[in-house]
């Protein structure tokens, strides 16, 4: 990668004070204003982008010759229920802001829901890597609770298909433009999305009778 060393060290990362990696310098050149925020923790680079621009961002990252992010490793979501913002902000700020939430409610009725804050509840997380350049990047988009939708990445990477189905299944994020958005692990009759923080760990769902070919008649009560 032909990146000027002096340029790399002059642009210091705001959050950590570390000099930018050559990969991040190029990402900034390619994306420019599309990056809302950049953070680096333990050497993992992460950019935040607006959810309306995600398709454009990913296309640029994939098609740039120097970056060549051709492998989409993972798509997942984070539920920040009752949390003000990013956990990496200075601790004293978010301790004051954080409303009371019982950490691990066993059942739904035991849950004390915190008031809805100004921050979007969900974050969608993408992990990218390159099979030729071997660098990694994480992209995050915040998605609000009342409209949990984001554009599907299947036009850029077909492998997003199953990963987005899984995120839909477990978090209830709807991916616009996905060719086949079905539940992947759970049955169609399942109510709710189990990895959301307001789904209790021991919440139960009724057993669904089998209705396919060869199903038996329900037994009459004695």
């Amino acid at each position: 990668m032909s990146v000027d060393k002096s340029q790399a060290s002059s642009e210091a990362d705001r959050s950590s004070g570390q000099p930018l990696s050559p990969m991040m310098v190029r990402v900034r050149q390619v994306l420019g204003e599309l990056i809302l925020e950049h953070r680096c923790f333990r050497g993992d680079d992460r950019i935040h982008v607006a959810r309306e621009r995600i398709l454009e961002v990913c296309q640029k990252l994939r098609d740039d010759v120097e970056l060549a992010f051709d492998l989409l490793l993972d798509v997942t979501a984070i539920d920040y229920l009752g949390q003000p913002d990013d956990f990496e902000r200075p601790r004293e700020i978010w301790d004051q802001e954080r409303p009371v939430l019982r950490r691990h409610p066993a059942r739904r009725h035991e849950l004390v829901l915190p008031p809805r804050g100004p921050h979007p509840r969900f974050a969608i997380v993408y992990h990218l890597t390159s099979t030729t350049r071997f660098h990694r990047l994480r992209i995050k988009c915040r998605v609000p609770e009342d409209d949990p939708t984001i554009a599907s990445l299947t036009p850029v990477w077909p492998g997003a298909n199953w990963l987005e189905r899984e995120t839909y299944d477990l978090y209830g994020i709807r991916f616009i433009g996905h060719p086949d958005l079905r539940r992947i692990y759970l049955n169609e009759e399942f109510v709710g999305h189990p990895l959301r923080k307001d789904y209790g760990k021991f919440d139960e769902q009724p057993i669904q009778p089998y209705v396919g070919p060869g199903a038996k008649e329900p037994r009459r009560p004695h």
């Binding site: 923790f41 333990r42 993992d44 992460r46 490793l73 993972d74 956990f87 990496e88 601790r91 992990h127 990694r136 994480r138």
Partner: peptide
């Protein structure tokens, strides 16, 4: 507080 991703090469591919 923070978030990290760590990958290793498992028998079937990248385990992260």
């Amino acid at each position: 507080p923070g978030e990290i991703y760590q990958a290793v090469e498992a028998a079937n591919g990248e385990l992260g």
